[in-house]
Design a protein around this nucleic acid. Structure first.
Lengths: 181, 181
DNA sequence: TGACAAACGGAGCCGTCACTCCGGATTATC
DNA sequence: GATAATCCGGAGTGACGGCTCCGTTTGTCA
């Protein structure tokens, strides 16, 4: 790859990251190209399809999220580590959903990207969850599957009432009264 | 209004309701027209804009939901009444709004529909919440605002892991240990 | 039953968006 | 500095969606 090509690829990716975070996946490829100071043709040379570009962007931001999350493993309180990750996720995805109608036409869903994305996120989640459960501060009858669902849900909750996130987290704490059912 | 006109309006509304529930607001006006056995012109004569049609559909399904919900006021256990409403909502919005993130794309916001459309849902929610709180089985430090956020969140949670809805509901129960924070 | 307003249908307009194509510019190599 | 490989820009293409316009049909009422 020629050096200018690599540079342009990076510029496109950066612009896409900025614009998508700002106004959702609805941004047109042309806008991204313009923001990157590049022609449309260049965008499609580096990313065969818009979906590929968006997917790349999500993977990148997901990787960054997971990397930051790994630092939480050093916290003394394992439940607080888990909850901090969930709170961060809620904040992030509430920002991302801000203007981001799902691009059903392109088959791109933010939720999916968050859910499946890298296998590293489930791993991190599983680790944090297991540790908190071992410490006895998070209810033991919760799996990674449900935790992931709650993470996504928290993102939507945060958009409407930030405090709702704490209510969801409270439901995860050990010792709650599971009365009937 | 001529009788055939009224009939056609109803047919369009019904078709839109079915198609939107099935595949989201992304359906084209032409598809709706075809499903209703009507020309596109007819659709736009009865609903000045696609947004108006979608909004009407949303209002209708919301009204139906609220009506069904009112019956819950007769249940003996006020918390179970509230929780049943939330579970129903989760089921509905996870199925119906499969692609409902696209509401934003169409310039239509759930918030708006909830707020302007019918003030009845917040009212119903408030009533159910107040009764359950009075009975002491739902934590008292929760407002309608947060409850609404949780309702929306539960819809997304149900899509990924149905049991996650119960976890959210558990967080609403009174008597949970609010350890730190 | 005739006459007329009201409603219908759907071809077509306009705008947008993802994606292609190719002449020209840029970079690497010797 | 010449040559070839590579990359660039952006006008153009095709598809699609919302919406309009108007010739045709239908319901209504005297």
């Amino acid at each position: 790859m020629r050096s200018d090509a690599a540079q342009n690829r990076a510029k496109v990716l950066a612009a896409a990251q900025r614009l998508i975070a700002q106004s959702g996946v609805g941004v047109s490829t042309e806008e991204i190209a313009k923001a990157a100071g590049v022609g449309i043709g260049t965008v499609f040379r580096h990313f065969p399809t818009k979906e590929a570009l968006v997917s790349e962007v999500f993977k990148a931001s997901m990787a960054a999220f997971v990397d930051e999350g790994r630092a939480l493993l050093d916290l003394p309180d394992p439940r607080e580590a888990l909850f901090t990750l969930l709170r961060r996720s809620a904040k992030l995805s509430s920002a991302k959903h801000a203007h981001a109608g799902a691009l059903a036409a392109a088959g791109i869903s933010v939720d999916e990207a968050v859910a499946e994305g890298r296998a590293e996120l489930p791993e991190l989640l599983a680790t944090l969850l297991a540790r908190a459960q071992a410490a006895g501060t998070v209810r033991p009858d919760v799996g990674v599957q449900e935790l992931t669902a709650l993470m996504i849900a928290a993102g939507h909750a945060a958009k409407h009432a930030p405090r709702a996130v704490d209510l969801i987290l409270d439901g995860l704490k050990a010792g709650s009264p599971r009365l009937n059912r």
